[in-house]
Amino acid sequence: MTSIGILRILIFLVVVFLFVKPLGTYMAKVYEGERTFLHRLVGPLERWLYRICAIDPQADMPWQTYTIALLSFTVVGMLLLYALQRLQGVLPLNPQGMGAVDPSLAFNTATSFATNTNWQNYGGETTLSYLSQMAGLTVKNFTSAAVGMAVLVALIRGLTRRSVKAIGNFWVDTVRGVLYILMPLSIVLALLLAWQGLPQTLSPYKTATLMEPTSYEQPITDANGKPVLDAKGQPKTKTIKVTEQQIAIGPVASQLAIKELGTNGGGFFNANSAHPFENPTPFSNFLELLAILLIPAAIVYTYGRMVKDTRQGWALLAAMTICFLPAIGVAVGFEQAGNPLFHSLGVDQTASNLQPGGNMEGKEVRFGPVDSALWATTTTSTSNGSVNSMHDSYTPIAGMVPMVMMHLGEIIYGGVGTGMYDMVALVIVAAFVAGLMVGRTPEYLGKKIEAFEMKMATIVVLVMPAVVLVGTALGVATAAGRAGVSNPGPHGFSEILYAFTSMGNNNGSAFAGLNGNTPFYNDVGAVVMWLGRFWEIVPVLAIAGSLAAKKVVPPGAGTLPTYTVQFVLWLVAVIIILGALSFLPVLALGPIVEHLLLTAGTTFK
């Protein structure tokens, strides 16, 4: 790794941590109903929304009502997004005349955005109208992110309230998340990104005349779409001369801002943040990267503040950072080292004043290996899923890092709530096991951890590996699953594993070598995304309901402090052991064996 690369990573992390306390404090105030500097501006809009939706903001809900409200809100939004895509051909704001989206693809996309996954089987600029992008995808970006934060806030109330049934009001938590947190941050970021060159327009795509016309040979096909062969059995072709290029534009900046801030990740364009209109400059890259970690890092402090013990938040932040730093080091290190087979061919992969060096396949020249690998690690640590390079082209071990970050549950940092409530489930498991080892009743933040909470935490921890591994097994075992693979050998296996890892974790990033827009991946993927999201949220809210009903036990001599270095290290050990037990065998079949074969000089054709 180069010294300038290390410096860039350090600057990024320092800037992220500078925002942790102020933003974390602000978010805690929002959710606790305290007055903030935005109340005068946003307060009337908030109250108006409650009035027209007939919501009583004072009405607290038990966990069952909270969960049903969340599910109803999600499924209605999902059906609306599905309808919007199917009807976009007859709806306005469609200057390119995009037709109805295929049912299977529309279903996958609707599920994907309802679950905050934002898996991209669609190609934004070739599939969706401006209305579908704005009123469909962008709106879901806001609401699905706010739902994730609402679940965390409900869980925090479960931990802090005493002997009550209610865990808050879902509608109030969601509205506040959108109006006071996501919307203001998105407006600021959208303006900054537009300043950096992202389009923000409703004009049709532009047509440009090429300065250097080009041509290519296009195969001639028959009525069935099969290539027509000549007398020698070779495919007949015709020469196509290209003199013009269509340049896709649209309301990009407004969608990009929430795409990163809400850890959504679904791009306006198919190439996501590798596209020059989504991420044109190194500074826009820095802003977007910062936006990915901004709320996830700050929400850990929010957690500490809301449980009335900021040491708890700092301890979890430390545990997350302990997992995050080595991952960055491995991903950047292997990408900067380059492809070992290229060295023997005499290819210069050394960083110099003339080139960034390293493995540049699948990467944008303006970002290079460091910013690409840093992004890949960051986007999979949180549940973001946007990409600025193609992970399929990474060296095997660097390509494994994003998978590992997702396999750990995307708990680094707290996501928009999702990573944080998964982390709390892991803390419960860690506290329980520690309690068993010393023979004391486990407790966390003064609440006794009993059989029900452990069962729920176990479901939360096991649902993700189950859907990922079963989905991968289906992908490998069926012809429909294997048909999407574009590489033979272990790399092809990695493509399937990555796809189901990403969908099962509601991440949304892609290895990019897999053709996912097939009925198999659209339909099975939708099921995996739904189960990965809501079969975790329901037990998390059940834990909240169960804990809220309990009394608080004052700390005693037998209480395990959960803010000490000892507990942080124990928590990291539990996270790594659970991740390794679940996923080491499949990683051995994919990236690990590919790395060993690559270093031995074996490739697959």
Binding site: I68, V75, M78, Y82, S104, F107, F452, W535, V538
Partner: peptide, 30 residues
């Protein structure tokens, strides 16, 4: 799959979670 089948699958998603809420509620009550 056709529109109707996919909408039915969406509702199945929803009710799978409602069923889960009901089951966990009973488990909690024990």
């Amino acid at each position: 799959m056709a529109d109707v089948e996919l909408i039915a699958l969406t509702l199945l998603f929803f009710f799978s979670c409602v069923w889960m809420v009901d089951g966990l509620d009973r488990l909690m009550g024990r």
